[in-house]
Amino acid sequence: MVVAWATLRRSWLVTRRAYPWSYFIGTLLLGVFTMGVAYLGLRAIAGDQVSAEFAGRAGTADYLGYIAVGATAYMFVVHGILWIGKALIQEQREGTMGALVVAPARRLPYLLGFAAFAFTAVALEVAVLLGFALLLGVRPTATGAVDAVLAVAALALAVFGMSVVLSNVMIVAGEAHITQNTVFQAMAVLSGFTFPRDYLPEALRWLGELIPITAAMDVIRGVFTAGTGLDPARLGVAALIGFGYAAAGLLTMPWAERRAMERSF
């Protein structure tokens, strides 16, 4: 607990001094323009209608609301992974990873502390994007407070699990740019952020199931978009894959750190 708290505090202090504005502006702009295209397209191309196929598959005819929830969730996921997943490679680049590996602190509290910080920061950033959605006339609803909390928690767990695994990949590869962008772009297609996954060919739908974010997004859709409430089956899958990723990542982390340290010396 002490380690988690210390990490949270340190991250806040560092961030207050040098906030990575380009991360925030970059992901915010993507969200804003995704909604912007949806808004303009809906008016000029679709004449304020949406195809029946979409309404059937998405469980709603509110296209703009659908995109707004998706774009917001995407910002939450991307930014969460940028913070948590890149924590270790950042330490590696700044040369503080050696100190971290030597310190007797366990990795889980360190990462949880970092995640607590990241989700606080991301929540504030997501609020800005939601404010923009409100301006466009989107009125977000949820099927209930408990549903909403559980759905967001499922997504946060998925982000955490992905981050731990990606963190290992990044420090072993000594590379973040290609890894992170490929994962982000793949998620944007596979996990149902801006269109129902049913549009995809079946093989790609199954590929999407390998990412914990996909099941968590289905839960989010039930609560925030379709109004069908919490889907216990999908919630279970999301939790299972999310914990699986986190556990696998934590178990392989000592190996990844050793590889990274060997490579850098």
Partner: peptide
Amino acid sequence: LTLAQSYYTLRPLAATPGI
């Protein structure tokens, strides 16, 4: 991937009556 995403995102708007 970007192309696939933008295509699927716009499809609900294109497949509308009177397009």
